[in-house]
Computed example of a mutant assay.
Amino acid sequence: MHITFFHDVLCPFCYVTNKRLKNVISKYENVKVKHKAFMIISSLDDLLAAAPTPEDARELFRSEFSILTRYYPDYDPKKVLDKGKIGHVWSMPPLMACKAAEFQRGDQGHWEYFSLAQDKFFMEGENINDDSVLISIAKEVGLDVERFKRDFKSKEAKLAVIQDEEEAKAMGIRGVPALVVNDKWLIRGVQTEEFLKQVVDDIMEYGEPKKVELKAYWEQ
C-alpha cells in the first residue's frame, strides 16, 4: 500500500503527524510514503503586511508553536522563539529544499530532509529561510551539497512545489496534514498512532477501511 503525505515544514500539526506516521510504518515492510508539498504561508508579501517587523512575525508564530504543547507538554515555545532567529519565514524556501533532497534520493530523501528541517524550526528555532541553514541540513542528512546548492533554488524545485499544491487542491485538500491512502482514502488532521495503525491494518487485510471510518477524498 502507499500513502501520499501532503505537508508543510512550517506546520505544527504536520510535525506531530510526521512523527506518528514514522513510528507506525516502521513496523511494516510494504507501506510506501510519497511526500508532497503544501504551503500554509504562500506569500512573503502577505506575511510582511500582517507582521511588519521580525518581532511581529515571532509573535504571529507564537500561537503556531504553542500548538505543540497540546501534544508535548514539556515543549516550551517561548524558549525556541526567544532565540530571535525566526522572523519573516514563509513556506516556499524550505519546501523547495525538500524537493532538492527528493531529486537526489527520492521520497526517502525528501522525508529525511523534511523531518530534520522541522526539528530545526520547531525545536531549535532556526530560520529555515536562511540559505546557510538549508545547506547545513543538506550536509547533515548526507546529500551531495554541491548538487543541492544548484537545485534548492531552481525553477524545477519551485515548479515541483507548485504542482504538488495544485494536485492537492484538485483533490479538494485545503489544509495539511493530509494523508491519501492508495490514491483514495483521505485522512485529515492529526490522528493517533492507534488510528493510523488500524487504517494500515484494514487496508492490508481488506483493501478498504473496516474498523475505522474514512471517506474517499472526492466525498469530502
Score class of each variant (00 low, 15 high):
residue 169 K to A: 02
residue 85 K to W: 02
residue 163 Q to W: 00
residue 124 E to W: 09
residue 4 T to W: 02
residue 182 N to E: 15
residue 177 P to C: 07
residue 45 D to V: 13
residue 114 F to W: 01
residue 217 Y to F: 15
residue 178 A to F: 06
residue 107 D to K: 01
residue 218 W to H: 12
residue 20 R to F: 08
residue 124 E to T: 00
residue 16 V to I: 15
residue 77 P to Q: 11
residue 181 V to I: 15
residue 186 L to W: 04
residue 210 K to M: 13
residue 55 E to K: 12
residue 28 Y to M: 10
residue 106 G to R: 03
residue 60 L to N: 12
residue 11 C to S: 15
residue 159 L to K: 14
residue 214 L to V: 11
residue 75 Y to K: 05
residue 45 D to F: 04
residue 100 A to W: 04
residue 177 P to T: 10
residue 195 F to Q: 08
residue 133 V to L: 04
residue 23 N to F: 05
residue 155 K to A: 14
residue 23 N to V: 07
residue 40 I to C: 04
residue 76 D to A: 10
residue 117 A to L: 14
residue 161 V to I: 07
residue 169 K to Y: 01
residue 135 I to D: 03
residue 21 L to T: 11
residue 67 I to Q: 13
residue 99 K to G: 06
residue 109 G to L: 11
residue 149 K to A: 05
residue 58 R to Y: 12
residue 69 T to F: 04
residue 5 F to W: 07
residue 81 L to S: 05
residue 192 T to C: 04
residue 112 E to D: 15
residue 27 K to W: 00
residue 71 Y to K: 02
residue 202 D to G: 07
residue 140 E to F: 00
residue 103 F to N: 06
residue 2 H to N: 14
residue 174 R to A: 12
residue 173 I to P: 01
residue 169 K to P: 00
residue 3 I to S: 04
residue 186 L to Y: 02
residue 5 F to A: 03
residue 119 D to F: 08
residue 35 H to R: 11
residue 85 K to C: 00
residue 156 E to W: 00
residue 121 F to I: 09
residue 166 E to H: 06
residue 219 E to N: 09
residue 143 L to Q: 07
residue 156 E to R: 09
residue 195 F to N: 09
residue 202 D to E: 09
residue 5 F to Y: 15
residue 141 V to C: 04
residue 131 D to Q: 10
residue 122 F to S: 07
residue 180 V to G: 02
residue 108 Q to D: 15
residue 123 M to L: 15
residue 98 C to S: 14
